[in-house]
Each structure stands twice: as structure tokens, then as C-alpha cells.
């Protein structure tokens, strides 16, 4: 797990939570390898180290019952709560009159919700980044009109141009993709687009001229005419 976004989110959340809940006297976050991610300034390093050492001892001894998810004790002068979140531990020390329901809500609702949001944002950033890296820019081609009885409903692009659109670093992959392309998206610069079947240009006079031959009825739908530039993207 990339800890940084979670650590930042939890750290900020803890700061705000402590402001909103003054019953929380001290808090800090540490990881399974005892790295402190966040702490409030009222608790010193030595205290945190001693707490983590005790917890480490306890973790050893609790192996027969499994990994500790929650550890808490109450006294007449305050309560101690340590709970696991992802691969981190969060510690609260609260005053003796603290609202236990509030602490429970922070543990079970607020912090998990924050983490879920961070999860979603992190995942969508990864998808967007991957998409950005793999998506090729659409090819701009000049419109030629296909009219007449045999125009059909497929656009025509010549083979070399199609290869250029789909080109990857792997020749075999290119051949596979070429075999499986049967639709392209035609998009105007106004933003209108349509999905069309695609065939290789049959008339040799139109090959090698960066053209896309489009049936008249599709041109009417997209409000384009011969000579206009359109963007062409394969549907893979």
C-alpha cells in the first residue's frame, strides 16, 4: 500500500478530530514497523516509544488469539485506546468523562470513511494515469464523401493509415489488433461523434491521401462535408 496518501489523510483527520473532541488528550499514529506517522505536540517521543514497546510485547503474546485489532483499558483518570486501521495503529488517550460513543464513532465510522475516500481517489488516479499512458491521440483525417447506391454504412480508411492509428511497439500485437478492428469512432471538432463500421479503402485512387471516406448519410448526421477534418479513433 502506498502509505503516503493514507498517512496524510489520517494525520489531518486526527488534527481536526482532536479539535472537535477536546476529550482526546493525546493521539498518535504509528505503523507496524513502529514508524510514527503523526503525533500531537503534547506527547513526547519517549512516551510514544514506551507505549509502542509495550504494545510490541503484547503483540508477541497475543499471537495465539490472532492479530490485535483493538486494545483498550479504562482507569478512573482516563482511558487508553489503540486500534488497527489498515497497516497502521491509532492511539487515543482520553479523559475520564469522555463520551465512549463518540470514540466508537470515530473508530468505526469516521476514520474508515476517510480511508475509503482516500482509497477511491487513489484508485481513480491510478486508472487515469494508466489511461493517459496507454491511450494514443486520435488521428486527424480529411473527409471524402461516399455516395451512391453502394455507399453502405461503413467508413473506409486505407490500411497504412489504420496501422498508424493502432501502432504499438509489438508487430504481432499490431497484426492482431488490425484483424479485430471493425469499428472506429469519428469525432468532429465540435465534439459530435459516432461509431461506425470500418473497411479498407477499396479504390486505389484514394489510398495514401490521409482520407476517411464517409457515407453521405453519416456526414449529414455529423454535419460535415468533403474536405473537413475529423478525428478517428479505433474501437479496440
Amino acid at each position: 500500500m502506498n502509505r503516503d496518501p493514507y498517512a496524510v489523510a489520517l494525520s489531518n483527520a486526527l488534527t481536526e478530530i482532536q479539535t472537535a473532541y477536546p476529550d482526546i488528550n493525546h493521539s498518535f499514529i504509528f505503523t507496524q514497523d513502529n514508524t510514527i506517522i503523526s503525533q500531537d505536540p503534547k506527547i513526547d517521543q519517549r512516551t510514544m516509544n514506551r507505549i509502542m514497546e509495550s504494545f510490541e510485547e503484547l503483540k508477541e503474546k497475543t499471537k495465539p488469539i490472532g492479530d490485535i485489532q483493538n486494545f483498550q483499558f479504562s482507569t478512573k483518570t482516563g482511558d487508553f485506546t489503540l486500534f488497527a486501521v489498515k497497516d497502521m495503529y491509532i492511539v487515543f488517550e482520553t479523559s475520564e468523562n469522555s463520551d465512549k460513543n463518540q470514540i466508537y464513532a470515530i473508530r468505526k465510522v469516521i476514520l474508515p470513511t476517510i480511508l475509503k475516500v482516500v482509497d477511491t481517489i487513489a484508485a481513480s488516479e491510478v486508472v487515469a494515469e494508466n489511461h493517459l499512458q496507454t491511450e494514443k491521440p486520435p488521428k486527424e483525417l480529411t473527409v471524402d464523401l461516399l455516395s451512391g447506391f453502394f455507399a453502405g454504412d461503413a467508413v473506409q480508411i486505407d490500411l497504412e493509415t489504420l496501422l498508424e492509428i493502432i501502432k504499438t511497439d509489438d508487430q504481432n500485437e499490431d497484426d492482431d489488433i488490425l484483424e479485430n478492428i471493425d469499428h472506429v469512432r469519428i469525432e468532429t471538432f465540435r465534439g459530435d461523434s459516432t461509431l461506425c463500421k470500418v473497411k479498407e479503402i477499396s479504390d486505389p485512387n484514394f489510398k495514401g491521401k490521409n482520407l476517411v471516406r464517409i457515407p453521405e448519410k453519416i456526414c449529414r448526421t455529423l454535419e460535415i462535408q468533403k474536405g473537413d477534418l475529423v478525428k478517428v479513433k479505433p474501437l479496440l
Binding site: 493525546h26 512516551t47 507505549i51 503484547l58 497475543t62 488469539i65 490472532g66 492479530d67 490485535i68 485489532q69 483493538n70 486494545f71 483498550q72 483499558f73 479504562s74 482507569t75 478512573k76 483518570t77 482516563g78 487508553f80 488517550e93
Partner: peptide, 13 residues
């Protein structure tokens, strides 16, 4: 943490 005598302890796995 300068806390008083412990009343109860709960550990959950």
C-alpha cells in the same frame, strides 16, 4: 501516561 489504577482491559483480535 500518568493514569490511575486500571479498571478493565479489552483486547480484540
Amino acid at each position: 501516561l500518568d493514569l490511575d489504577e486500571i479498571d478493565s482491559i479489552v483486547i480484540e483480535s
